[in-house]
Design a binder for these strands. Structure first.
Lengths: 201, 201
DNA sequence: TAATAATTAGGACAAGCGTCCTAATGAGTC
DNA sequence: GACTCATTAGGACGCTTGTCCTAATTATTA
């Protein structure tokens, strides 16, 4: 059985709805309604709702890894690659203002539900963490690489949370600018690009 | 009708459970089980579940305001007051690692549920935002006061989100240190206390 | 003590949920 | 056309949910 078309549709619709409404608040009826199938035949493709969640997380893991690989090739310097990460705040700005960060909100919800898939969801954070750490290592930060990666992760998470609460476009833009300015202090002077820098940090 | 004892018990139990399990995932049975009352007499004290949520938010608003007022008196300088805020990350460290930030996670959940109490929950953020802004204003930051307040809010939210995901004590401690160090740069030199400062920012 | 009001317990209710079962439909092969 | 297998639709199921109703209980007052 290759990956069935219906199965793919279910995963995609669930992916969207889990993000927009949360996992627990999304029902089979919701998913079925979106793609126009009967509620009954979910169990031909999945054994349980949790298994759909597992498939959604794996889908996101794959997509995230692909995105990171793409950034790795597209951007020429580690600093530019980190900026690629920061700029998803801008690319997904409207969705973040409505639904928050898909990774942070999922991990948060599964933590509260004490759900067994919680561990899996954290692997999404791991992907970014490892990738960012790698970039900082390339910037010459041996000891601090992981701490800096966590710092960037936390920073972007905080921006997403407050952008979601206040639905504030300008706040996102400002913080992105601050992160980029902060980042320049961790870029080797030789490779440092010439930006305007009224450094806040 | 003064505030009934049972009513207070319901609000307090709901407050805890909404934090630990989330609002949607907490049932009347859950609350009833905790305080040992029947499921039936909720509707003597509240008209609906949403009204309980409203009462819980108002309770939190009151407690938060009291806490801010206390900090206002207890700490002698604006910088010390801001540090009071930062240190709730330390005081509530264990709970944050298990359940995240009570404000951030509630706002996030209500945003996904598109719940009518969402606006009320954001007032919790407003309380901190206004208070922090006031402190930064006192530090002499006229134009930037609100941006700096939002920055501190976002930073602490990010720390809570990742601390929750990774259940990492040390990460919280490190970030608190970073925030305090960062804060020194915004404290007038005359009043600036002598701390060790291997500044990361 | 008797009467009245406040408070509670317990269950009924309709609706929605995840799950499961079975008959019907579809596509592809002999 | 007949057969087989994959896929689907539709509904039944047991359970839980928020909500509501009513009788019982407790507290308060006369």
């Amino acid at each position: 059985m290759k990956t069935s078309a219906t199965r793919e549709q279910i995963i995609e619709a669930a992916d969207q709805l889990f993000y927009q409404q949360g996992f627990a608040h999304t029902s089979f009826s919701d998913i079925a309604g979106v793609i126009g199938i009967s509620r009954g035949n979910f169990y031909y493709h999945f054994k349980s709702k949790d298994e759909i969640l597992d498939a959604v997380i794996n889908e996101r893991l794959q997509n995230t890894q692909d995105m990171l690989d793409m950034w790795e090739e597209a951007a020429s310097t580690p600093a530019a690659r980190i900026r690629s990460y920061i700029h998803i705040l801008l690319t997904n700005r409207d969705k973040i203002m409505r639904y928050g960060c898909p990774v942070g909100t999922l991990c948060g919800e599964l933590a509260k539900l004490d759900h067994c898939e919680r561990t899996e969801s954290i692997r999404l954070f791991d992907l970014f963490r490892t990738w960012l750490r790698h970039q900082f290592t390339q910037l010459g930060h041996k000891e601090d690489a992981d701490r800096l990666a966590m710092h960037v992760l936390a920073w972007s998470q905080g921006v997403a949370t407050l952008a979601n609460a206040y639905e504030d476009k300008d706040f996102i833009d400002q913080e992105i600018q601050m992160i980029c300015t902060w980042l320049e202090a961790y870029t080797p002077p030789a490779k440092r690009p010439q930006h305007s820098s009224d450094a806040l940090h």
